[in-house]
Design a protein around this nucleic acid. Structure first.
Lengths: 108, 108
DNA sequence: ATTAAAATTCTATAATATAGAAAAATAACT
DNA sequence: AGTTATTTTTCTATATTATAGAATTTTAAT
């Protein structure tokens, strides 16, 4: 891939946003809330894995501090490389969207 | 796909931008110029096909008016549905990028 | 006729998207 | 103590998309 895919972008941004609450279930909730769409479990965890393998995310297992039991959480945080990828995306986005015909909805 | 993929987005925007000069070779040139990266022939024509099948683009064969001979061009133009997809993308982009931690490069 | 040029079409492989069942881990309940 | 309910992740399989470039088509120039 030349750039992050769409799911990768949204998930990276979510990890960044959620800070120390960035684990799978929360990430999924946030993405679903923001997009207003259903995201399967796999459509979150598979990209998370891939982003970590590529060095755009780091993770560590959390303490066993759940309210009502359950497997321990895996917390993610974005790396500098991850931030760089997002920045590259932002640049290309601006470049393409600023250079549009007249009556477009290019505002913002 | 929930949203346009990255190549689909960039190619749609390019067709929109190029207006009556939106055919394969030109589209490829523009995308390469804007991204500064190599795009194979297939990485342009395959998405173009798909975007047309999905109704986000329309096309028609051009007259045989080449300078030095050659197969006739296929001209594309964006449909209302295509514009709608781009708008949906813009919305989701804004929503995610505006809602970021402090010291981000979220300017623009 | 033959060659060169311009452009697209076609086809194959790699990577990513997407879905959800299965497993793991722990707290609560009896 | 053992069983059950809950939380979360891990795993695996299929569909779709990305990516590359060879082959083909078409026409102008030689």
């Amino acid at each position: 891939m030349k750039y992050l895919s769409r799911p990768e972008e949204l998930i990276l941004l979510t990890v960044w946003k959620l800070k120390d609450e960035a684990y799978g279930v929360q990430i999924r909730k946030y993405v679903q809330k923001m997009t207003g769409k259903y995201w399967s479990i796999g459509s979150i965890y598979v990209p998370l894995d891939r982003l970590e393998n590529k060095g755009f995310l780091e993770s560590e297992k959390g303490e066993a501090t759940s309210e009502r039991g359950g497997k321990s959480k895996r917390y993610y945080r974005i790396t500098q490389e991850g931030l760089d990828q997002l920045e590259a995306l932002q640049e290309i986005h601006k470049k393409f969207w600023q250079d549009l015909p007249d009556a477009s909805f290019k505002k913002s």
